[in-house]
Each structure stands twice: as structure tokens, then as C-alpha cells.
Design a protein around this nucleic acid. Sequence first.
DNA 1: GTCGTTGCAAAGCGTTTGCAGCCTA
DNA 2: TAGGCTGCAAACGCTTTGCAACGAC
Lengths: 130, 130
Amino acid sequence: MQRDTQQKEAIRLTFIRAGRPLSIDEILSYARRQVAGLGIATVYRNIKSLQEEKFIQPVDLPGQTTRWEIAPGGHHHHFLCRTCDKLYEIHGCPEDLSRLVPEGYTLEEHDILLRGLCKNCSRKNNTRER
Amino acid sequence: MQRDTQQKEAIRLTFIRAGRPLSIDEILSYARRQVAGLGIATVYRNIKSLQEEKFIQPVDLPGQTTRWEIAPGGHHHHFLCRTCDKLYEIHGCPEDLSRLVPEGYTLEEHDILLRGLCKNCSRKNNTRER
DNA sequence: GTCGTTGCAAAGCGTTTGCAGCCTA
DNA sequence: TAGGCTGCAAACGCTTTGCAACGAC
């Protein structure tokens, strides 16, 4: 039978408070504010367990370590800020993806990652330039 | 001064013959047909060197190891076959990406990965179903 | 008190680096 | 022949696993 530990609860809370996908390091450092000696192995184990419970799901990004977000998100994509490295959920899809696929190929899924500056970093950038 | 070794030449040839992005394992096993004792460290070193020469460039995929393709490809995206795991280059972009970005965000780049069945695997799949 | 969970340390795994010997120029 | 390159093995960084102690129920 599964137990409710401080560690797991702290990690769950971290996701709820963050409101955006988190990396392992983000989870570790945020959750440590609540459970001081929290070990990285415990984070990995609870991430796995929370995924099995379908509380969170993985977000695989090109050239980056996996991030984790509260599930179910429904179908959506992400925006990665090149300055603060934070990841944000975005909604909607391009409508003309199937025309990109060559003759004979069967399109089943698509991953889209938009990159640039988030709201916060866009503002800072504008302020600096003035 | 840089030397032309059998190993490096074999790797270069492997890319030319393949005509699609390759993983480290693909490069190692294909190039070994030409240079038997080829070591994995040599592959990594030559990949780096070929990248510096701008003969190849990395292709980062979500949840997969980096693949490598002949450069310059210009701006393009990829199609990953879920059956044979081969990666193909595709051309063109969706036209309405900027409408996906929330107010205040600055869109600079985008990565798109299409997934499904390549031509070969689509055909096999149809044949089997009949 | 039981036994699932934790933190530590060691093991895995893909990638990188150190080094002695090889081979290109 | 010099010294860049190779293959091997060890080192690395991130993730997973083994284990004794801890703590939820």
C-alpha cells in the first residue's frame, strides 16, 4: 500500500505552485524549501510514481533534459524562453501540417516547440533598449 | 595541421551514402563496414570535427539522442518514422505559428517534428492489412 | 511493528577525455 | 620523423538501483 510522505507532497505542491513545466533541478530546489534534506533520488522516484498516478506527464524537448508538467494537459505545445530557460504551455496548432508531409508518408503526430522571449524577458529587453 | 584519415573519410562517406540524418550508432555501424576496428570515441571526435568544418550539423529531437545531417540544410524540419526510427528531412513551414504565441511573447524560432510512418513503412503496413 | 520510503553511495549508460602507439604528410 | 589521430580505458554527468535506517499507517 502506498504512503503519503512529506517528500512526495512537497513535490506535488511544487508543481501546483509553479503552474508551468519543471525540470528535475527546478523540482529539487523548489521542493527543498519545504523538505530540507530532500535527495535527488527521491525526486526521480516520486516523479516516476506521480507519472504512474497520472498526476504529471513528461515533456520531451529537443536538446534539453525532460521537463514535467501536470497532466492531463490535452493536446498542446510549448514555448521556451531563450533567456530565462522557462517553459510555457501554449494552445492551438498550425492548420496546414499535412501539406508538409511527402507523398506516401502517413502523418500521425506532431511536436512543436516555439522559442524566443517570454513576456517577462520581452519586457526587460525592451526596457534595456530604451 | 589536419590530416585525412580513413576513419574520417569513412564517416564522411557514410553521410553522403545515407542521404538522411544519422544517429551515432548508425554512423558507427555503417562506417565500420569500411574501417573494421573503428572506435566510438573516434566517431564522436570526428563528428565534432566535421561539425566545425560545417560538413554536418546536429539535429536535436525530443526524447531522442542527437542525430547528424549534412549541412547546410537551410531552414527545414523532420519526419520521424515510428516503425523504423529513421529520420527524414521535410520542407516548408506552417504559416500561422505566430498566432499561437500569447500576448507579450516574442517568437524567434520554431522546431517542428512530424511523426508517423515513412513511405516504406506505410506501404508495408497497407500490405499486411490486406 | 510492518514494510513502503528515504538518503546515501554505487552502478549504469551515453559521451568525453587521457594516453601510448600508430600512421599521415 | 613529427605530431595529429586512433583505440582503449578511465572519467564525467545525469539517471537508476541497492541497502540500511527511517517513519507512515
